[in-house]
Design a protein around this nucleic acid. Structure first.
Length: 261
DNA sequence: ATTGAGACCTGTCGGC
DNA sequence: TGCCGACAGGTCTCAA
């Protein structure tokens, strides 16, 4: 959704000016960040996992990650406020402002042809909505994994771009316990069990619904199935269980112990 | 090679 | 009201 909203004002537009209002986010901005952007045209704005990628006319690519608290907004004038760390003045007339209170976000520049070797991108698993991601791919990636399903799905090498919320949601739809060993969705030789089919389908469903919801104002009030609903009633038909919260890998997991096995 | 714990930051919320 | 701990949609590094 972020890519989609920025595309009209950034794609085929030039950076007229770039304000960098502090020396770093989670990591320092790259050398000569401003100089390497100003004057460049954004040839394409794409996404890989949770990274937003702007392909530049210079042969470099601008990588952007929102971290936990990052966001972009589009303004007509740049009245920068607290935590507005980067301001892009585009030739489209739009001013794109990156705001990030916790500064877990990242911005970096890399030669476009080197992109496949970029450390954060190199080992990423398949995009969950692509045809390459299916029960077979998921089972292969989980084969032999002693860790839990919850932790496995958060591992960006297994599937790229799932976050803490959607992992809980997908496991609930698939009726699989977050504590269950990841390897149990595959046979010893790495072939998909029925649970792997359910889980890969649930992941696609959750993301598709999220996209629909973002695009469709009517759906927007729809609440999560389990995330942030500790103590509330499970919505699965004829379940009636109570949503529980527990910590896995230092992050909250929400699930229904009655219908998730 | 995997896996878990801790680190990085600031803001918000609930309890006392 | 003020203070304090717990927690927040992510990723990296380090050590076992």
């Amino acid at each position: 959704m972020v890519r989609r909203s920025l595309d009209p004002v950034m794609s085929l537009a030039r950076f007229d000016d770039v304000e960098v209002r502090r020396p770093d986010l989670r990591v320092p901005f790259p050398k000569r960040f401003r100089a390497r952007l100003v004057g460049q045209t954004v040839m394409a704005l794409t996404r890989r996992a949770k990274y937003l990628l702007a392909t530049l006319s210079s042969g470099e690519t601008l990588l952007m990650h929102l971290g936990m608290s990052g966001s972009f907004r589009i303004d007509r004038q740049s009245d920068a406020g607290p935590h507005d760390h980067v301001v892009f003045h585009m030739s489209s007339g739009a001013i794109v402002i990156f705001n990030d209170p916790r500064r877990f976000g990242v911005m970096d520049l890399v030669a476009t042809e080197q992109l496949p070797t970029y450390p954060a991108l190199r080992l990423l698993g398949p995009e969950p909505l692509s045809p390459e991601f299916n029960a077979a791919a998921l089972a292969r990636a989980c084969r032999g994994k002693k860790t839990s399903l919850k932790i496995a799905l958060l591992d960006q090498r297994v599937v790229a771009g799932l976050g803490n919320i959607y992992v809980s949601e997908a496991l609930h739809i698939a009726r699989l316990s977050p504590q269950r060993r990841a390897s149990t969705i595959a046979t010893p030789s790495g072939l998909p069990r029925e649970s792997a089919h359910r889980l890969s389908a649930a992941i696609k469903q959750v993301l598709t619904e999220a996209i629909d919801r973002a695009a469709n104002a009517a759906y927007r009030s729809a609440r999560f199935r389990v995330y942030d609903r500790e103590g509330e009633r499970c919505r699965t038909l004829r379940c009636g269980g109570t949503i529980k919260r527990r910590t896995q890998g230092g992050r909250s997991t929400f699930y229904c112990p009655d219908c998730q096995r």
